[in-house]
Every structure is written in C-alpha cells, then in structure tokens.
C-alpha cells in the first residue's frame, strides 16, 4: 500500500541573485528538517528570466542581496505579483530576509534618489543610503516561542506600518533600533539576514511544523543538535547579564 506522505512545495526566488550572507542556509536547513519529519519536499528555484506558476506553493523564500541586486530582483519579480498574492491568499507563507524584504513594501528609494514602486504586500517603505550599519540582535519571536538571534548588515532604513515580526530585546553595534520586520498573514519580512532559520532552531522548527502539519522528529538530527548548541551559545553571548540589562 502506498504511503500517504505530506508534500511541502517550496519556491526559492532569485537564489543566484540574492545569495549574500549565507541566505542559502535557510533553504538547506528547512528542507533537511522537513525531510527528517517525513515530508516530501518539492523545491522549485526561479530566477531572472525564468517562469513557472508557483501560486500553489506552501512556502516562498527570498534571501538577501546587494542593494543593486535587490533592485534588479524588484524589476523582475513584478511579473509574479499575482502569483504571490494567490499563494498568500491560499494560506501560503512567504519569508523574505535582508534586502529581499524591501521588495514587498510600497516603495524603495535607491541610491540614485529614484523612487521605485514596491510590490505593495505590506505597508512600509525602504530607503537605500551610502552608510553601512551593522548590529547584532536578540529579539522576541511569538512564532518560535523563544528568542531569535541574528544580525543586520545594511545600508538602508526601513519603516513598516504593520505588526512587527520581532521585538528587539538586546542590540549591539549600530544597527537599526525599534521593532523589527513585518508580519501580515503569511507574509514574514525581516531585515535580519543570513541563515536566519539555521541559526535559530526554535524558529526553524516552528516554521517546519507550520508548513507540514507534522510533528518534529523524536530525535533531532545531529546537524540540528549542533545548530542548537551554536544557537544557545550565541544567545548567551548576545544577552547581557541581568544587572547590566537593568542598568541599560
């Protein structure tokens, strides 16, 4: 008798264009965990010039790229706007990190001063500027139930007028302050970049459960146990001692 397996359809947008700061780590870790949970993962990669109907995806991911490349992706992604809308309306989830998140707001002001219309899925706008800022963060994350750690390495300012995806608990460096990201239905936007899911196993596991409806494996795979050790270490490192936090 054929086994009925849960299939999770994933679309990875612009993986060869928006590939900075280890963005690929998100896809690698998510797919491996879903497979460990018993799901069948159908991955579709789409980039500039390619076409496919991915409106039936369970999950869409767009990573971080240079400011110039983000604008290149913006010009190309417009033709997929309807598909993305249908995916989200049907209960799909979309995660965009770093500069990739800017594409889903109402507008982006480039370094040339030109204002470009965004996809408009979330209320908010982004402005690219010359100065670079780098900050490391601990943020609260209702979806994960545990804090999220990560970094923002940016030369842009983003203002979202949506429910924040995260709340900043601790920050080091000169990265942006205040609530972080936007959450609107299945749309998850954050300036946190890099392998966000890999470095935050609680968020990775919550997302995998949400996408598949399956329970986590009884025993975590070794790579995930190791990622958990790295996460715990980073969380300790980025969280100031209670005394210091109280005085801050």
């Amino acid at each position: 008798m054929a086994e009925n397996k849960t299939t999770v359809r994933i679309t990875w947008l612009y993986g060869d264009l928006m590939n900075l700061y280890g963005s690929a780590g998100n896809m690698s870790s998510l797919m491996r965990l879903l497979e460990a949970m018993g799901a069948v993962v159908e991955l579709q990669e789409l980039s500039v010039g390619g076409y496919s109907d991915f409106s039936g995806s369970d999950f869409i991911f767009l990573g971080s790229g240079t400011e110039r490349r983000a604008l290149m992706a913006l010009e190309d992604i417009r033709r997929f706007k309807d598909q993305i809308a249908r995916c989200l309306e049907a209960g799909g989830t979309l995660l965009a990190t770093g500069t990739g998140s800017a594409l889903f707001g109402r507008s982006i002001k480039g370094l040339d001063g030109g204002l470009r219309e965004g996809l408009g899925f979330a209320a908010g706008s982004t402005e690219f500027y010359e100065k670079r800022r780098y900050g490391e963060y601990v943020m609260s994350c209702p979806l994960a139930g545990e804090p999220v750690v990560g970094c923002i390495n940016t030369s842009s300012s983003v203002r979202w007028e949506e429910q924040p995806l995260f709340e900043v608990l601790h920050r080091t460096g000169d990265g942006p302050e205040g609530p972080e990201g936007a959450l609107k239905g299945g749309l998850m936007l954050t300036q946190l970049q890099g392998p966000l899911l890999w470095r935050n196993p609680p968020l990775l596991e919550a997302l995998a459960r949400k996408l598949s409806g399956l329970p986590l494996p009884e025993c975590r795979p070794l790579w995930l146990k190791e990622a958990c050790s790295g996460y715990q270490r980073l969380l300790r490192q980025l969280t100031p001692p209670p005394e210091k936090a109280k005085n801050a």
Binding site: Y21, A24, G25, C151, T172, Q193, G194, R199
Partner: peptide, 9 residues
C-alpha cells in the same frame, strides 16, 4: 566584536 557566522555558508 562580531558573532556573525553567515560566512560559514
């Protein structure tokens, strides 16, 4: 001081 391990990818 930095702890970003993105470059490992």
């Amino acid at each position: 001081s930095a702890s970003d391990m993105s470059w490992l990818w």
